[in-house]
């Protein structure tokens, strides 16, 4: 892609599956994920990089998918909230969210889960402070955060 172009064909691995698509350069990654690949678990809250509802993992790092272009993800491995549940149902983090009442309307939850997932992979037994730092970029208008923090800390406690 050394010559400028208004569109490009990209190859992106999402949740272990490779997608090859032609996309407009102006297409945001979050729209690619939701509308082209139809993985609608990733939410759009603010579209300005502030709320974190669109958080996914890109090559193992939590990022806000409304702040990237789809073409920037060419060659990358992405992980979205759909990848968390396993064959037996909810994974331990999701189970902890459920048992700690860490969601009400659930709009922020996919982003919260993806930020928490990145934290727990790097630091399986985070302190409450570390959990708060990890979700600093994720806004929740319902829960007041306390139960979310408790759920994250409880996963491997």
């Amino acid at each position: 892609m050394a010559e400028p172009s208004t569109s490009a064909s990209i190859s992106v691995e999402i949740n272990g599956e490779v997608y090859e698509r032609e996309v407009d350069a102006r297409r945001l990654l979050v729209h690619f994920i939701r509308d082209d690949v139809e993985l609608t678990g990733t939410h759009i809250g603010c579209d300005t990089g502030n709320c974190g509802a669109c958080t996914i993992q890109l090559d193992g790092q939590a990022v806000k998918s409304c702040m990237l272009l789809a073409v920037q993800a060419d060659g990358a491995k992405l992980r979205t909230v759909e990848d968390l549940a396993n064959d037996d149902g909810l994974n331990p983090l999701q189970q902890a969210f459920s048992s700690h009442h860490a969601l009400q309307c659930g709009y922020c939850t996919p982003g919260m889960l993806m930020s928490a997932t990145a934290l727990l992979e790097a630091n399986p037994r985070p302190s409450e402070d570390e959990a708060r730092t990890a979700i600093q970029g994720n806004i929740c208008r319902c829960t007041g955060y306390q139960n979310i923090v408790e759920a994250i800390v409880a996963v491997n406690a």
Partner: peptide, 30 residues
């Protein structure tokens, strides 16, 4: 949100990046 149409290029070296930035009007580093 829909962005205005834009062209995209992904250079592999500093020399290539400068060529692209200097050679195209309205080019910007990302």
């Amino acid at each position: 949100m829909l962005l205005r149409e834009v062209e995209y290029a992904r250079p592999g070296s500093v020399a290539e990046a400068i060529q692209l930035l200097a050679g195209h009007e309205g080019a910007r580093a990302l």
